[in-house]
Design a protein around this nucleic acid. Structure first.
Length: 712
RNA sequence: GCCCGCUUAGCUCAGUUGGCAGAGUAUCUGGCUUACAUCCAGAAGGUCGUUGGUUCGAGUCCAACAGCGGGCACCA
């Protein structure tokens, strides 16, 4: 047996050990009848490992290693996400440094550029995953633009379409003037703003001198007003219903209507209706069959309006319109008003609500599927309080805009007739391949595929069955567990649930675990751009992978987000060293007492005590792991090993007549117990003890063996 | 605006059916005892956010308030 160093040094051993394990990560390498199937949240190809990834995947790795010990076949497939909008933006930023925009390159060359990026950097994050010791099957890496994956997504869209759940509509949506694309409600960053509330006077027609005052934050949109609305319960304005008001500056007549969405207590209780540039107004306009007039274009400039405003940027237009309103005495007053405004989550540009032709997925029935899944406990959400968040979101969910007008992504399987397009008429067919039939309208064949791409999340929503069903070799659907941070709960988790039920009639996973979000010490979100992010790989370099895992797990409590505290890595380092030295003690002790201390079959009180403690700890840890309570699990191992085994039992072994077999059992079982949490250290010690077969391939400690000892 | 969570030792956090307040870290005292000074033995440190209620008994249950965090809605 080799002389082990006095202190544990992770640096030299981690890579070597990982290589020894890696062949056994393969799915086919395990023979168990029961399976444990885990879904990885595929990181973006632009991604760099952050602490959240490290925590999330360490948790899954703990479960995976535990299940392997229990003899289960672990199926855990890694992969990456093409992440359309965020990847496009990253590559655009890179181009910007060379003074180029994507429009300079053109669509084709730009896409080549993105693919080059992906080939070069796309899998870097997976290499970083390896550094923290996680154990998915690396021979089965999936990417959301793989051929098979793309087909799954196209089939899903076509299937929805055939069932009438997909429709194309020209409607008010959130649009980023910089990214030049539509965005879903979930891709918006709302920021507090100090703005103004403008009180604008609209004259009532009917010859009277009466007028209605409207409070608005967006005076420039009066150019597109189609009505004024008041609350049906608002007595002040009942007499005006059905009358017409005159739009200032434009001098168009607009109807005065009543709608329940109007809050009589806000402003003057009169709301101007601009369906093209406000989501609420759009909804109200739909109810009252009002037309939609659009005066802001995709570049956030005024269009289709009075010549003096056309072409102005929306903010310039606002200034000018205020001036003009003042001039005609139509501006009653201006109040300071704090409210939040929508910005592009990816690039930070102020969004515009504008009408755009987009593809929508009807959410009503799908939301019901999702609700039923959790109500009937086919999918269990943990921690429990996220259930409420889940149901609340589904209750109010709007139809999902699944198309994007950016370049990088998966193109919709939609083909437009080019002839008809020239005549400004949209004739399209939905098909994976180019249609071979003639256009119904022009009777000619000139189909061209749309450049629109899918919302990445439409693609990610299909991840479970896209990867667990493919290749016919095996159906591994549904998975047992998926884990994510709360920020992609609706974006990803909820959508996987209804997609799974809709297409496979079955839940995509049995359990969802929402893990804490890692904040900095001040309780703020860590952000790469603000420089407040911490690179997990640097921590691996500094402390070793096991200690990183220890430190993250120790502080990740169930109930809330955690304020990242580097102190726990000191605790972890000390603990790793303690375990290292306890095993050294065992080795030295055994050698020294080879002859004099043979097993005499008797148990001392200390023996009995430590065995009972060991048994209790094994059961507790098992229970906690299954319940996602990783921190308490780790803490109970810590206390058992350090306080009861090292401080009490080992001390008594030095002087007393403890049973050597008990010492051996506790050492070996402790390594097994700790292995899912600190795999490298325990593996190295296992090998140091002269074991031929890897600890990775052992089984979970048996309490039966302990019972047999105790019976003696 | 509506909803949810959190508030416990200097710091970061545990505290599972209500029953003498815990850990890590930091601090102090004493020990290089041949596994580990990355250690051992011991000490100090808290009106459990505030106010009220239920109870023989409340960190734990209820109500209100405050501070912080989050979710939803919203260019009213």
């Amino acid at each position: 047996m080799t002389e082990a160093a006095k202190h544990y040094n992770p640096k030299e051993i981690e890579r070597k050990i990982y290589e020894k394990w890696q062949p056994f990560f393969k799915v086919g390498k395990q023979k168990g009848k029961k399976t444990f199937i885990a879904l990885i949240a595929p990181p973006n190809i632009t991604g760099v490992l952050h602490l959240g990834h490290a925590l999330e995947n360490t948790m899954i790795d703990i479960m995976a290693r535990y299940h392997r010990f229990k003899g289960d076949r672990v199926i855990w497939l890694p992969g990456t996400d093409h992440a359309s909008i965020s990847t496009q933006n990253v590559v655009e930023k890179k181009l910007k440094k060379q003074g180029l925009t994507r429009f300079d390159l053109g669509r084709k060359k730009f896409l080549e550029e993105v693919w080059r990026w992906r080939d070069q950097f796309g899998d870097l994050i997976l290499e970083q995953f390896k550094r923290i010791g996680i154990s998915p099957d690396w021979s089965r890496i999936r990417f959301t633009l793989d051929k098979e994956y793309v087909k799954t997504v196209e089939d899903a869209f076509i299937h929805y379409y055939k069932k009438g759940l997909i429709y194309r509509d020209d409607r008010a949506i959130n649009f980023c003037p910089r990214c030049q694309t539509s965005l879903s409600d979930l891709e918006i960053d709302w920021r507090e703003n100090n703005g103004n509330l403008f009180y604008i006077r609209y004259k009532i027609k009917a010859g009277s001198n009466e007028d209605l005052i409207v409070a608005t934050t967006r005076p420039e949109t009066i150019l597109a007003d189609v009505a004024l609305a008041v609350s049906p319960t608002d007595k002040r304005y009942q007499k005006y219903l059905g009358e017409k008001a005159i739009l200032p500056l434009v001098n168009r007549e607009i109807l005065i209507i009543a709608d329940k969405r109007v809050d009589p207590n806000f402003g003057t209780g009169v709301l101007k209706i601009t369906p093209a540039h406000s989501l609420i107004d759009y909804e109200i306009a739909q109810r009252h069959s009002l037309p939609m007039i659009s005066v802001i274009d995709q570049e956030a400039k005024i269009c289709n309006s009075l010549p003096e405003f056309n072409g102005l940027d929306w903010l310039e237009a606002r200034e000018k319109i205020i001036e003009r309103l003042k001039a005609i005495q139509a501006l009653e007053k201006i109040e300071v008003y704090q409210h939040s405004l929508p910005y592009c989550e990816r690039c930070g540009t102020a969004l515009q609500v504008i009408p755009s032709k987009e593809w929508f997925l009807k959410m009503k029935d799908l939301a019901e599927l999702a609700k039923a899944a959790v109500k009937q406990k086919k999918v269990r959400i943990s921690p429990d309080r996220f259930k409420k968040v889940y149901f609340d979101w589904l209750k109010n969910v709007r139809d999902w805009c699944v198309s994007r007008k950016i370049w990088w992504g998966q193109q919709l399987p939609v083909w437009f007739c080019q002839n008809c397009l020239k005549n400004k008429s949209d004739v399209y067919k939905i098909s994976r391949l180019k249609p071979q039939s003639n256009c119904n309208v022009c009777k000619k064949q000139n189909w061209s595929r749309t450049e629109e791409v899918f919302d990445t999340w439409f693609s990610s929503a299909l991840w479970p069955f896209a990867i667990l069903y493919s290749k016919k070799e095996q159906v591994w659907y549904p998975a047992d567990i998926v884990s994510s941070a709360r920020d992609i709960f609706h974006l990803w988790i909820t959508r996987m649930i209804f997609s799974g039920f809709y297409f496979k009639g079955k839940e995509p996973f049995k359990k969802v675990f929402i893990h804490p979000t890692i904040m900095n010490k001040a309780g703020q979100r860590m952000s790469k751009s603000l420089g407040t992010g911490i690179d997990p790989i640097e921590l691996v370099e500094k402390y070793g992978a096991d200690v990183l895992r220890f430190g993250l797990i120790w502080q990740a409590q169930q109930t809330q987000d955690l304020r990242f505290n580097e102190d726990y890595f000191e605790t972890g380092s000390k603990f790793a060293n303690k375990v290292w030295n306890a095993v050294r003690f065992y080795q030295i002790f055994k050698d020294k007492n080879k002859e004099s201390r043979a097993d005499n079959g008797n148990l001392t009180k200390a023996d009995q005590l430590i065995l009972k403690d060991l048994k209790k700890t094994i059961n507790l840890v098992e229970k906690k792991i299954l319940n996602f309570e990783f921190s308490p699990a780790l803490q109970s191992i810590y206390r058992f090993f350090w306080n009861r085994f090292c401080d009490v039992y080992l001390e008594s072994s030095k002087t007393g007549k403890n049973n050597d077999k008990v010492l051996e059992l506790v050492i070996f079982d402790s390594l097994k117990l700790l292995h899912p949490f600190m795999p490298f250290l325990t593996e190295q010690l296992w090998l140091n003890l002269g074991q031929k077969k890897l600890l990775f391939l052992q089984s979970w400690p048996e309490t039966k063996t302990i019972d047999q000892f105790l019976k003696k």
